[in-house]
Design a protein around this nucleic acid. Structure first.
Lengths: 194, 194
DNA sequence: GTCTATATGGCGATAGAC
DNA sequence: GTCTATCGCCATATAGAC
């Protein structure tokens, strides 16, 4: 605790980085709920108490793991909202989310796949507000039921390509193109009026 | 235990039906992991031990709740496999799964949304084999990566429309049509070759 | 079939020595 | 920063009376 305590830099220490690295791996493999502090500690070769020196709760570990992805998602949403046309906004949000999922598959799988995590995220207004903005972007701001159904199908569906072992072998660039194709058909194709 | 023990009918007693009814409600509202036996018992106005008289484990309750949906899914898969053309098989599997999700939204939400449940289902070969056959049907038997991505996006995406509060107000018939539209665009639209 | 009471175990989290 | 040890809690599951 030499000069580190000065002004409390919050977040990011080398110790935390190591914890979050192995935690992500375990979260992706076995889910958050099944990943006990004991297993994280075992994987690091230390004890629970050593892990807990860096954090005050398990939730803090989870949020630490998710933080980079959420920061990136925020940039994606804000960039998409800068686009002028409706269609451009959808395209931008689509390209951004696909890229995020493809390049961070394990993290995306954790973020999207864990139902218990949703409750946690809803406790954090700045995060759930971000997700609302994302869904609105994907809907194309139409707000008609057809667009809502398509948008929620796409959003919740991303977990499949992120975790399905059958697509795990695809290169990033290949998966990205297939996902963009699928997303465009779902979100941008002309739909019958009702 | 008058004449009920004769030949062990397995499954389905009036007592089990009542348990599974309230269990489904709680599973849908708060997830399987958060639904303790105590809460099921409270909702029924009895004690944990009374609930446990009908079952040997919590997993048996979960499987009991899921059983009707899985039986229906089996009929859907087998019917789709009887269709002759590739496209007909996709159409049939799509219509069947959409109908299942729409008419049993809460049950579908539980079945599709719980990540811990997947591990349980994978322990039962006859169930996971059924899901494999379903994915193959939705892929159109092509097996190319684009079809795999689309199929897994659709499958994992169904949980959204099944649970999203923004579409909860839609009538069954309306939601069914929107989901069929989305599914057709995703699974049946011509895709660029690669 | 339902009850009270308890066994059994794992979890997150803390205390305090080193 | 890491350790040993332990607390407090709540979960599933069981025993046995009624």
């Amino acid at each position: 605790m030499a000069g580190a305590a000065v002004s409390e830099k919050r977040q990011s220490s080398p110790g935390r980085a190591r914890v979050e690295e192995v935690a992500l791996e375990l979260f992706a493999q076995e889910g958050i709920a099944n990943t006990t502090l004991q297993r994280i500690a075992d994987a690091m070769g230390v004890t629970k108490a050593a892990v807990y020196w860096h954090y005050r709760s398990k939730e803090e570990i989870v949020l630490g793991v998710l933080k980079p992805a959420l920061a990136e998602l925020r940039r994606i949403v804000e960039a998409a909202e800068q686009e002028r046309g409706k269609r451009s906004r959808v395209e931008s949000a689509l390209a951004g989310t696909v890229d995020l999922v493809v390049t961070h598959r394990r993290l995306a799988g954790v973020l999207l796949g864990d139902s218990a995590l949703r409750e946690t995220l809803e406790q954090h207004p700045e995060i759930s507000e971000l997700l609302v903005r994302l869904v609105e972007l994907l809907q194309g701001a139409e707000g008609d039921p057809g667009s809502q159904v398509a948008a929620t199908l796409y959003m919740s569906g991303l977990v499949g390509p992120a975790t399905d072992p059958r697509v795990a072998g695809l290169d990033d660039d290949v998966l990205r193109e297939y996902l963009l194709d699928a997303g465009r058909r779902l979100l941008l194709a002309r739909r019958p009026r009702r």
